[in-house]
Amino acid sequence: MDMEPVIYVVDDDQAVRSSLQALVQSVGFKSRVYNSAQSFLDDYDGVSPGCVVLDVRMRGISGLDLQEELANKGITLPIIIVTGHGDIPMAVRAMRAGALDFIEKPYRDQELLDRIQQGIEADVRHRKDAAARTIIQERLDNLTAREQDVLNLVMRGMINKQIASELGISLRAVESHRARVMERMQAGSVAELVQMVVIAQPEFAKRILEEKLR
């Protein structure tokens, strides 16, 4: 998880590309440059965290197309779109398609570096969340069907007695299942358990709440 972030510069202008590399390297970032959206797509393995600095106007696959392509592949790398003068409609489209931010040329270098920093932070955060989700989901998948039933009802705020009656099993059996759930989920308290489910299955947690509010 502690991989060094990489700035991916995608620009078809050689000078702009190399100068951006020089700039980000001078403040200590690792960077890779690509002269086309396609070469970036071919090269990117999804492993390294970081963010993309992308010129919106390029020959071949345009910046906007690349953004869509990445989204289709499920790659969530933050994208900072660099636009020339008068490309506001394009920038709007980029933002709608999920770009982290756009920056208009000519920009101040600090502005760009700030956005790159934000981009990296967003990606690191995003990757941590994703990793946490994966771990919790693995634990959830390890529960037996009966344990999942119990967890569902705990999530709904029922006490053991209610759960026993709802599932038609003995109170002792509920207590035993519940203890297994806490153990398998490695949860120290019910509050922790609920938080885990909210992180891994936000839709499920939301549905329960909505049922309650209805």
Binding site: L20, L23, G84
Partner: peptide
């Protein structure tokens, strides 16, 4: 304008990198 902003951006980037 675009044609001019390319070298200007590059100049800015290189200069700041040197700094």
């Amino acid at each position: 304008a675009h044609e001019l902003s390319q070298p200007l951006s590059a100049i800015m980037n290189y200069a700041r990198a040197c700094e």
